[in-house]
Simulated scan of single mutants.
Amino acid sequence: MTSEKFTFAGHAGHMLAARLDMPNGTPRAVALFAHCFTCSKEIVAARRLASGLADNGIAVLRFDFTGLGHSEGAFETTTFSSNVADLHAAAAELDRRGLTPTLLIGHSLGGAAVLRAAPDMPSIKGVVTIGAPADPGHVTHNFGAALASIAEHGVAEVQLGGRPLNIGQGFVDDVAAANLQPALAKLNAALLVLHAPRDHVVGIENAGEIFLGAKHPKSFVTLDDADHLLSKPADAAYAVDVITTWSRRYLPAPVETQVAKAPEGTLRVTETSPDSFAQTIQVGDHTMVADEPVKVGGTNTGPTPYGLVSAGLGACTSMTIRMYARRKGWPVDGISVDVDHGKCHASDSKAGNKIDCFTRTIHLTGDLDDEQKARLLEIADKCPVHKTLERTNEVVTKLG
């Protein structure tokens, strides 16, 4: 992963501080991230989400809204609508760089902002909200007694997150008038709602309102006991895993990764781009991904080639056992197969050469006696992939 700092002009011409986290090789998607109210692009959750998504092949632009973090401008002059306008400016900057965004991700009030912005961004195919309010005016609950002072003086200092910030009447009026329902109704993108039931800052009922207001395709995934700011590394990592998996269904692959359908009976593997190790695997109507770990130059978007070989052995072993148990009527309630791949010394090799070794550990559940278990262990060795791996094979290579 590489990270680049730069600035771009926001809605009012102020220079906004941004950071672009890029995966190794060509990104399979480009995301624009909107941080939480009064936060910045460097908040822990934003950093962890961006780096995690970049490790999974998704480029992420995060930036400081006008008047926050390292961006220019006075925060007290901004509004919810100006935040949405800053998002449009950020999307235009990505487009100028040849990285047109297809995914919007918003945290807290940033989630409300991406919902408002998405219908006016034709390139967006997926929207993710994290702990977002269904009513942007929800944030004014944090202003307390300062609301009266803001109304009287036009601007007042409010303590938020242990630090003072000046809030203007324009923000209060604008956020109170904001209504997400029309934007949700016009949302022409898949929606993923992430929310924690124990979020004490933005209650879980907000997730329900957002979900019900949107059209399909839409998904909701709970963040369990995560706090509002996703301060625990495990919670941010879980959000990354969910977004990564979900996005593969709804975000189109870049043009160079789209694969012409292979002839019937042929498995076709096509590289994602010349700059990465990621591969798109097409088997009939099914598509998979292969890659290498980040530590060896990959982007970790899928299992390694040897991982796929091990998967074939494990799947075939389980299927073979199930077919036999089904035919015998034996009470096998569940089967799982662990496969470990490594190198071991060939017993008949005078030169001490090493060969590939696949170690299977078979887990069976059900009311089976020792004799049945032993027989099923023998049946595992009759797995066709097992037999293929143990035979001497030949690979014929030709140019197409």
Rank of each mutant, 00 (worst) to 15 (best):
E4H: 05
F8I: 03
A12M: 11
G13S: 08
G13W: 07
H14W: 08
L16S: 08
A18W: 04
A18C: 04
N24Q: 08
A29N: 03
E42W: 10
L53G: 05
E72P: 03
E72A: 13
S81Y: 06
N83M: 10
A85L: 12
L87K: 06
R97V: 07
L104H: 05
H107A: 12
A112W: 01
I124D: 04
G131W: 00
D135Q: 13
V139H: 04
A151R: 09
L160T: 12
N166R: 14
A176K: 15
N179C: 13
L187K: 05
D199W: 06
S219Y: 14
F220R: 00
H228R: 02
A236T: 04
A237K: 08
I243W: 00
P252E: 11
P252R: 03
V255G: 11
E256G: 08
V259T: 14
K261T: 14
A262H: 05
P263Q: 11
S276P: 00
E292P: 12
T301I: 12
P303I: 11
L308C: 03
L313I: 05
G314E: 05
A315P: 13
T317V: 08
G334N: 12
V339N: 00
H345L: 11
H345M: 06
N353M: 11
D356G: 14
L368T: 12
L376E: 01
I379Y: 11
H386Q: 07
